[in-house]
Simulated scan of single mutants.
Amino acid sequence: MSLSSSRDPEIQALLDKQAIQEVLVRYLRGADRADADLIRRCYHPDATEDHGGTYSGTASDYVDMITPNIGKAKVLSHAISNILIELESDSLAFSECYITTFGRCKKDGEYFDTLTLARAFDRFERRNSEWRIAARRMAWEWNHEMPVTENWGRGLIAPDPSVLVRGAKKPLDIIYQR
Results as ranks from 00 to 15, higher is better:
86 E>F: 01
157 I>R: 13
61 D>K: 15
121 F>H: 10
9 P>L: 14
36 A>I: 01
28 L>H: 14
160 D>N: 15
104 R>W: 01
123 R>H: 03
151 N>R: 10
29 R>L: 14
132 R>M: 01
63 V>D: 11
118 A>E: 03
123 R>N: 01
72 K>V: 06
133 I>W: 04
134 A>S: 12
60 S>T: 15
100 T>H: 13
110 E>P: 00
119 R>S: 12
40 R>H: 04
82 N>D: 13
30 G>P: 06
123 R>Q: 10
3 L>V: 06
175 I>E: 08
2 S>Y: 02
166 R>I: 04
158 A>F: 13
2 S>W: 05
120 A>H: 09
104 R>M: 13
78 H>Y: 03
109 G>E: 09
35 D>I: 04
113 D>S: 07
130 E>L: 10
44 H>N: 02
91 S>M: 03
97 C>I: 04
25 V>Y: 13
19 A>V: 06
105 C>P: 00
122 D>L: 09
44 H>R: 04
123 R>F: 00
83 I>M: 13
11 I>C: 10
153 G>P: 07
122 D>Y: 04
7 R>C: 08
30 G>T: 06
113 D>H: 10
68 P>D: 09
85 I>C: 11
71 G>Y: 02
45 P>I: 07
61 D>I: 13
120 A>Y: 14
147 P>Y: 00
114 T>W: 05
130 E>I: 11
125 E>S: 11
139 A>C: 09
49 E>D: 15
37 D>T: 11
57 G>F: 12
89 S>A: 13
105 C>T: 08
161 P>T: 07
5 S>H: 07
26 R>G: 12
131 W>N: 00
91 S>K: 08
51 H>V: 02
93 A>G: 07
27 Y>C: 14
65 M>Q: 14
107 K>Y: 06
81 S>T: 10
60 S>V: 14
158 A>R: 07
129 S>M: 11
8 D>N: 15
118 A>R: 09
76 L>G: 00
86 E>I: 07
168 A>E: 14
71 G>S: 05
156 L>H: 10
167 G>M: 01
146 M>V: 05
148 V>K: 00
7 R>E: 12
51 H>S: 03
25 V>C: 05
132 R>K: 14
90 D>N: 06
5 S>G: 02
116 T>Y: 05
135 A>D: 08
165 V>T: 10
